[in-house]
Design a binder for these strands. Structure first.
Ligand SMILES: Nc1nc2c(ncn2[C@@H]2O[C@H](COP(=O)(O)OP(=O)(O)OP(=O)(O)O)[C@@H](O)[C@H]2O)c(=O)[nH]1
Ligand SMILES: [Mn+2]
Ligand SMILES: [Mn+2]
Length: 274
DNA sequence: TTCAAA
DNA sequence: TTTGAA
């Protein structure tokens, strides 16, 4: 590879470390002649997401120890319970799969007043669910949420920080990425499954569902009606636990900590693939 | 519409 | 594949 293009790919990689900068933006910045993150910081046209990403590039690359994840989660639970005890929340992602370290904190939120029809209404009106807005507001007031990346009807992406000094470093706790996802309570278990992952298991379960004439996603498991010409989503299969989904797919239940399939040789699960 | 993230 | 910013 020529020295010039080597330098270029180095810069591309450097810029893409910033959350909010993907392949297209990175190229654009290289074309502008930027050579460093400092050049980047002087660009007046960065998006808000990119500004936040740049501000915390180093911190976001650090893994979050499990005990800190637990501390962060406890704050969210306590804060939301104080404003409305009917909020239910569960940390998903790698944390729920038992990881000792995580890249970010993924939380799914439900509330008895937030139903499937609610979600549709909210999307139609392009309004933010008051229930999500309220939750975010409470967390911001507390000072727990320090920056936002995006906030919408049902999804919030932002930055949080545990208060006080981290005994590990004798420094303030680092800023951490946090995702809040509001899902209709009818879809709680399929949502939980989808957001716990891992990606590999999701793929396996979805293709398995397909074979069996179902369609599986975060919104539920449904029968698919197959006419000669087209396939349309049919009735929803009642799901009252994660086990139910495995059962319907004829798979043995897997505890969250057993769902780390990414990169694993899947001898054990091979029979359920293909 | 395009881009980025998950 | 879906959500949100711009
Ligand atoms: N539908 C869909 N869901 C995704 C996709 N990528 C990630 N997710 C979901 O988001 C969940 C959390 O994603 P991440 O936070 O990126 O990954 P993680 O497994 O928690 O790992 P770390 O956060 O890096 O520790 C995953 O379990 C997925 O179910 C995608 O491309 N499509
Ligand atoms: Mn995660
Ligand atoms: Mn995440």
């Amino acid at each position: 590879m020529s020295p010039a293009s080597q330098e270029e790919t180095n810069l591309l990689n450097l810029f893409q470390r910033v959350s909010g900068i993907g392949v297209v933006a990175a190229k654009k910045f290289v074309d502008k002649g930027y050579k460093s993150l400092e050049d980047l910081s002087n660009d007046p046209n960065l998006t808000h997401h990119q500004c936040v990403g740049l501000k915390y590039v180093d911190e976001f690359e650090k893994e979050i120890p499990r005990d800190e994840m637990e501390n962060l989660l406890a704050i969210v639970k306590k804060t939301l319970n104080e404003i409305d005890s009917r909020y239910n929340m569960e940390a998903c992602g790698s944390f729920r799969r038992g990881a000792n370290i995580s890249g970010d904190l993924d939380i799914i939120l439900t509330h008895p007043d937030f139903t499937e029809v609610e979600e549709k209404v909210v999307k139609r009106h392009k309004a933010t669910t008051p229930l999500l807005a309220q939750a975010v507001q409470a967390l911001e007031k507390y000072g727990f949420l320090t920056d936002f990346v995006s906030t919408g009807n049902v999804k919030y992406m932002g930055v949080c920080q545990f208060p006080g000094t981290d005994p590990r470093s004798n420094q303030p706790y680092l800023h951490r990425r946090i995702d809040l996802r509001f899902i209709p309570h009818e879809n709680y278990y399929t949502g939980l499954l989808a957001w716990t992952g891992d990606d590999e298991l999701n793929r396996i379960m979805r293709s398995r569902a397909k074979e069996l004439g179902y369609t599986l996603n975060e919104y539920g498991l449904r029968r698919r009606i197959k006419t000669e010409t087209e396939e349309t989503p049919g009735e929803k299969i009642p799901i009252n636990s994660e086990e139910d989904v495995f059962k319907k797919l004829g798979m043995p239940y897997m505890e969250p900590h057993e769902r780390n399939l990414r990169g694993v040789v899947k001898k054990k699960y091979l029979m359920y693939e293909e």
